[in-house]
Amino acid sequence: MQRNSSDYNSQKAKFIEMLDDNVNISKTSDGKEFLYLVSAILVILLGVYIFSDVISGIIVNNLSVKNRLAIEQIFKFQQQENEDKKYETELVQLNKIKNEIIRSDKSLQIKNDFPLHVINEREVNAAIAPDGSIFITSGLLKELKNEQTYAFILAHELGHYKHKDHLKSFGRQIIWHTITTILTGGNSSSGVGQITYSTGSLTELKYSKNQEYAADRYANRYIKLRYGSNKAAVDFFKYLDKKYDMPEFVHYLSTHPSPEQRIQKITQ
């Protein structure tokens, strides 16, 4: 009897021990596995991103002028509602500045025209469409009245066009989406799909920061030659810095570098 009871107790102790440690209990923790898998996928995606960036750069740089213009026509922006009539006097001035910039640079003369449009928006902003149309917000025209500033902004946008930045980002996105769709099987609801699609939105940031700096340098060189100083550009960035007072880390995620960094780059 005594022996049976000790047998029973040791059996029970063994049983309790087995509850926490048996073949059916996986040893890996979910958190660790998650970090491991996500970092592996991010490394792969980084590779895909660099690959698509390099390849689209090579393709776009070797594009002939004829093909370039044909491709740009495909990506023609839909005509937005514009307010050209309200800002006729400003448009005449802007067109004059624009034509001067184009006359100064041979590589911009491949195209007949860069039509200028004013769009009704309070934000201070300007953009260039792939087909060469330049859009300027009415907010910008209201807030800034300086000719040299206008020249800097227009030269910046034309700099994007000259450097084929829009084509490069199109090419990058096409290659990126092709590869990631093959990888995820087009299923955006799976875990891999969610990571690739949400990191994909980061690649869609229109131009990279380096492209912004290049356009800044181009515009800076132009106004220095034309007006003898880049004071207008520095003032413009100081104005932006004051107007959109954002903490520094926000700029890491935004399309444009912070005004402070942009001043630093053009003054050095």
């Binding site: 898998l37 799976s190 891999v192």
Partner: peptide, 8 residues
């Protein structure tokens, strides 16, 4: 989500 990642 982890199971989805394991798919790959």
């Amino acid at each position: 989500f982890i199971a989805g990642l394991k798919n790959l």
